[in-house]
């Protein structure tokens, strides 16, 4: 029923190296369960910038009858542990834990939904999923781990430029430190070389999904896809992937200085996911 009360349950999930903060969005008790969705957040500060839009979408899924579990990965957000101790393998374990937790409590198919690096994590998980996955929902996926980390490392150069400190940082200095096995600090986050190395090795082109993919990509023109996304779509389709893709033009809400609400993205997601989100008849009435 529309406007019946959906629920919100924050809790801590015990995991290795401390507890993980989780937020569970529940459909109204009167509503039949249509399945579970695990949300994977983006990297570092993007997690905070995107909380608002992620919460709006999670709420929309709950309205449609889905239980949505948002988990803050080890060392991120309100979870335990330091960012410096975060490792890709730990994050993968966190996702396994979240999927298992949700599947034990919610009947129906399980969807992985990720934003930016969270989407790349979802693609990585989907190669060897801990439980069967029905589909992937990718919001502005990072396509190259190496490129995403290069862009993050640029924050050091930008911060130096803004603070107007005499000597600019030498280009490539951060990479050299990482290669020498040293942790580095970027925008208040301490990065372990092991984490960056694992992310560097990820390439969406080699992670062609075997479950249906629903992909939303930001485009300033809101109609044509950026070239790298268009290339990968073609390649994945050649690999046999079942793929839906649409563009949205609200803005880069994961990094914008202003908190954006992104009505276009929410609308495009609803339209694209209509076959499993709102389609009449897919819910048993009773």
């Amino acid at each position: 029923m529309k406007h019946a009360t959906t629920g919100l349950l924050p809790f801590f999930l015990p995991a290795s190296g401390g507890q993980r903060y989780c937020l569970l969005h529940l459909p109204a008790p009167s509503q039949p369960s249509r399945g579970g969705i695990v949300y994977l957040h983006p990297f570092a500060e993007e997690l905070n910038k995107s909380r608002r839009v992620a919460a709006l979408q999670a709420r929309a899924f709950a309205d449609a009858g889905y239980s949505v579990l948002q988990i803050d990965l080890h060392g991120c957000g309100d979870s335990g542990g330091d960012f410096a101790d975060a490792r890709w393998s730990t994050w993968r374990n966190d996702v396994h834990l979240a999927c298992a937790w949700l599947q034990q409590r919610v009947s129906g198919p399980l969807t992985l939904w990720g934003l930016r690096l969270g989407a790349l994590l979802a693609l990585d998980i989907a190669r060897h999923p801990p439980v069967p996955l029905a589909r992937l929902l990718l919001w502005q996926p990072e396509l190259s781990g190496r490129r995403s980390m290069d862009q993050f490392l640029r924050l050091r150069l930008a911060a130096r430029m803004l603070s107007n400190e005499g000597k600019p940082e030498t280009a490539g200095h951060a990479r050299a430190q990482l290669a020498a096995g040293q942790a580095i600090e970027v925008a208040g986050y301490t990065l372990a070389p092991e984490l960056i190395q694992a992310i560097d090795e990820l390439d969406a082109a080699r992670l062609a999904p075997t479950v249906p993919v629903y992909w939303l990509e930001y485009s300033a023109s809101a109609t044509t896809l950026p070239a790298p996304a268009a290339r990968l779509v073609q390649q994945w389709r050649d690999d046999g992937a079942q793929l839906h893709i649409a563009a949205f033009g609200d803005g880069a809400f994961w990094s914008s200085a202003e908190i954006l609400e992104c009505p276009q993205l929410l609308h495009a997601t609803r339209q694209m996911c209509d076959d499993w989100m709102t389609e009449a008849g897919s819910v048993p009435h009773g």
Binding site: Q151, L155, A159, L162, A187, S255, A257
Partner: peptide
């Protein structure tokens, strides 16, 4: 509005 994250967003 032009903080370090915004600079990187503009460049990207």
């Amino acid at each position: 509005e032009l903080d370090s994250m915004a600079v990187i967003s503009v460049i990207t």
